[in-house]
Simulated scan of single mutants.
Amino acid sequence: MIFDFLKHNVEIFIIIILGIMSFIALWYFVERLIFYKKVDVSIYKTQTQLEEDLTKNLTSLYIIYSNAPYIGLLGTVCGIMITFYDMGASEGIDAKSIMVGLSLALKATALGLLVAIPTLMIYNGLLRKVDVIINKFKVEKDEAK
């Protein structure tokens, strides 16, 4: 039955998805830091070309930080559904098992936030670095005139 499948696998799927999202966020963060450290603004003819190169992969970080809480929430909703299903299927209602089920369900939301918050901080930090590099480009172009 679908609830048995969810009961045994939903937590694993949510953790795997959030793990992949956090790995991608970390990968893009490191890649962008290396690129920003090595970027030479003098090779760019236009600001648009520079902006395209500087903002590469930032959209992916935006998608990760904006959707990770929803992935966690999906896990929480599934966990609560499973807990309610178990409550309805059992003969006696045990408060301990209900609380354990709900606390495990909320773990998914916490994991989603654990992925989203650092990714948001990384995204904003990288946007600031983009602004600084673009300003450096503008200064060099103004000095060259």
Rank of each mutant, 00 (worst) to 15 (best):
T55G: 01
L33V: 13
G88T: 05
G112D: 11
I63R: 07
N57R: 11
F35H: 13
G79Q: 01
V39E: 04
C78Q: 10
R128V: 07
V10F: 14
I15P: 00
I14Y: 01
L33A: 09
E91D: 09
F5G: 02
A89P: 01
K45W: 03
Q47H: 06
F29S: 12
I15T: 13
N124G: 06
G19L: 07
F137Q: 07
T59V: 14
A89H: 10
V39F: 05
Y28H: 15
L111S: 11
F29I: 10
I117R: 02
L102H: 05
I63D: 05
F137A: 11
T109R: 01
G88E: 03
I122D: 04
I122G: 04
E11G: 15
F84N: 05
L74I: 11
K145C: 08
E51K: 14
Y85H: 12
T83I: 03
E51G: 08
T55N: 08
S22H: 03
I24D: 02
A108R: 00
K37H: 11
I63W: 04
T59G: 15
I117K: 02
V132M: 09
K129T: 09
E52T: 12
F23N: 09
L54C: 03
K45D: 11
S97F: 06
V41H: 08
I82H: 00
N9L: 04
M99S: 15
A25F: 03
S22M: 14
L33C: 15
N124F: 09
K141N: 05
N124S: 14
M121A: 14
I2Y: 03
T83A: 03
F84K: 10
A105I: 06
I80M: 05
I20M: 12
N124P: 07
D131V: 09
M1A: 13
I117V: 12
K37F: 13
A95G: 02
K45E: 12
A25I: 04
E51C: 09
V10S: 14
Y65Q: 12
I34V: 15
S66C: 07
T46C: 05
F23R: 08
G72L: 00
L54W: 01
